[in-house]
């Protein structure tokens, strides 16, 4: 139920982002979702790709610093209040959200949102109990 997200360290210099996505493109790796977190000095590029192993190899061979993180893809009702309805049970159980970002594609009529939780296993329990749908990883890479 946890999906592997690829994180890449990037200096705040022109062309770093272009270089990374170019490498992935040449290796025929498809980016499904991305988020770029920044500070004044550096950034972290977070990617959901269709072939994590190939992406990691290509980037490491080119000398990039990468890591893999477990994230959870949650189906969130695509209406006002939808996100709140997902966050409520998590807050009630004291589960912390580190960051989140969304997919463009949908599986059903719900929005698909990627969450990094402080404790993914605890989050999964809470979501399951609240009847909130979580997408399995095989489905996510095909989105």
């Amino acid at each position: 139920m946890k999906v592997k997200q690829l994180s890449i360290f990037m200096e705040n210099r022109a062309g770093r982002l272009a270089e990374v996505v170019r490498l992935l493109g040449e290796a025929k790796v498809n980016i499904r979702a991305l988020s770029l977190a920044d500070t004044s000095d550096f950034g972290i590029l977070r990617l959901i790709v269709n072939d994590v192993e190939k992406a990691v190899k290509v980037l490491r061979d080119a000398g990039h610093t990468v890591s893999l993180t477990d994230v959870v893809t949650v189906e969130v009702p695509d209406t006002p209040g939808g996100l709140a309805s997902v966050l409520d049970p998590l807050r009630g159980a004291g589960v912390n959200v580190e960051y989140m970002y969304a997919f463009v594609e949908k599986v059903t009529d719900k929005a698909v949102v990627i969450f990094r939780f402080e404790n993914a296993d605890a989050a999964l329990k809470v979501l399951s109990k609240a009847g909130i749908s979580v997408l399995p990883s095989e489905m996510v890479s095909k989105l």
């Binding site: 997200q5 360290f9 977190a37 500070t39 550096f42 972290i44 890591s67 993180t69």
Partner: peptide, 8 residues
């Protein structure tokens, strides 16, 4: 390296 900004 850490995926979390705050750790870096």
């Amino acid at each position: 390296f850490s995926d979390e900004i705050k750790k870096l």
